[in-house]
Design a protein around this nucleic acid. Sequence first.
DNA 1: GCCGACAGAGACCGATCGGTCCGCTAAAGT
DNA 2: ACTTTAGCGGACCGATCGGTCTCTGTCGGC
Lengths: 201, 201
Amino acid sequence: MARKPAPGSRDRILGTAARLFQEHGPRAVGTQQIIDECGCGKKLLYQEFASKDDLVVAYLERCQQEWTAIMDEATRPYADDPARQLVAMVRAVARQVASPEFRGCPFRTTHAQFPDDHPSHQLTVRHVENLRTRLHRLAQGANARDPRTLADRLMLIIDGLYIDGAMLGPKGPATAAVALAEDLVHLAIEPPAGASRGRGR
Amino acid sequence: MARKPAPGSRDRILGTAARLFQEHGPRAVGTQQIIDECGCGKKLLYQEFASKDDLVVAYLERCQQEWTAIMDEATRPYADDPARQLVAMVRAVARQVASPEFRGCPFRTTHAQFPDDHPSHQLTVRHVENLRTRLHRLAQGANARDPRTLADRLMLIIDGLYIDGAMLGPKGPATAAVALAEDLVHLAIEPPAGASRGRGR
DNA sequence: GCCGACAGAGACCGATCGGTCCGCTAAAGT
DNA sequence: ACTTTAGCGGACCGATCGGTCTCTGTCGGC
C-alpha cells in the first residue's frame, strides 16, 4: 500500500550510539545526543529499541561480536599452536589499548557505570566468563602444567591491561603486558626443572 | 554567645558518604540519600562541602589515606626485605578483593563513573602514579634486574585483581594473583640462568 | 495523481538530582 | 530565664534525562 520501512535504520542508530558510547560511556550519552548525531527522530529510535537499556544491551552484544572477531583473527595464524594463541590474545588486547581512540573496555566501563541490577550486567559477566573459558581451553590445549592457573594469570593481565590503558595511557604499565604473557606461557609449559619457585605454598 | 559548631560534623557526613559511595558508587548516590542516612540537614552538608564534587574529592582523599595506611601496615613486617614487601602489597589487595563487602576499587569505580573533566580524575591519576612509583622503588630496593618492568608487571596484576574481583568475585582469577606475584618477584630477582645481575638502571 | 505510511523535528511530561532557602527546635552562653 | 545560633527538616527551583505524543513533510504503491 505505502512505503516500506527502511531496513538499515536499526544498524544506523546502533552504529551512532556505539560510537558515542565508546567515547563517553553509555551513561554520559543522552538519547537526544544520539538522535541529533544520527539525524533520526525519537520516534524511530524508540520503535527500534524499547528503551535506552535495550540500546545499551544491543551495544554490548555488538561489542561482544566485534571482540570475538578480533580474537579469532588474532589467533588464526597460530591455529595449531595454542601457546602462541594465548600470547596473541594478550597482544591483541595490548593493541586495542594502545590505539589512540581507546577509551576503556566497553564491558568494564558499562559495568562500572550502571547499578548492579542493570540488564547489561549479566551480559558482561557472560563475556568475561567466555574469555576465561577460552583462555582455559587454550591453556589445556597447550599442555600447560596447570591450565586453570595459567588462564587465570593471563586473565589478570588482560584485565589489568584494560584498566591501566584507560587510566594511564598506552605508555604506562601496559607496555609490559605482552612480554609478561610470553614469560608466563613459557613458564607454564616448559617447567625450568631446577628453578625453585614457590608454586607450592 | 551561643552554641558552638559541632566539630565532628564534617567527618560524620564524610563517613556516611564514604560508606554509600563504596557500596553503590558515587554517581548512584544522591545527596538526599546521604542526608537521610546521616541524619543531618542539607544546610550543614553544603556548609561543610561546597558541592557534591567536593564531597567526592574528599572521599577519594580519605580513600587514599586509608589505602596508604593499609599498604604501610601490610609491608611493615618486611621492612628490610623489599621483595617480600612487593608480594605483601599484592596480598593486601587480594585480601581487599576477597572481602565480602568489596565493591570495587574506589578510584577505578569513580574514574569510570564521571566524565573526563571531573575534578576526581587528577586525584585518581595521582593515586595510580603513586602506586606505580612505590612498586618501582621497592623493585629497585630488591635489586630486581629490571625494576621498571617488575613494577609494571605487578601493577598489571593489582589492576587486574581489582577488576576481576569486582566482576567475578573473589573465587575468580583473583585467586591466582598472589602466587603469580611471588613467581614474578623471584623470577626478576633470581635469574633462572646465568644472566648478569644489575642490568637495570 | 492520490492516498497512506514512514520518518524527522520537537513539544511535552514526569521523575530525578544538585543546590538554595526558610522555618522551627533546642542547646549553649550570659 | 532570655537571647542567640547551630543544625534538622523540608519546600522549592532549575536543569537534565528517559520516554510519549503530535505535527508535518515526503516518498512509495495503486
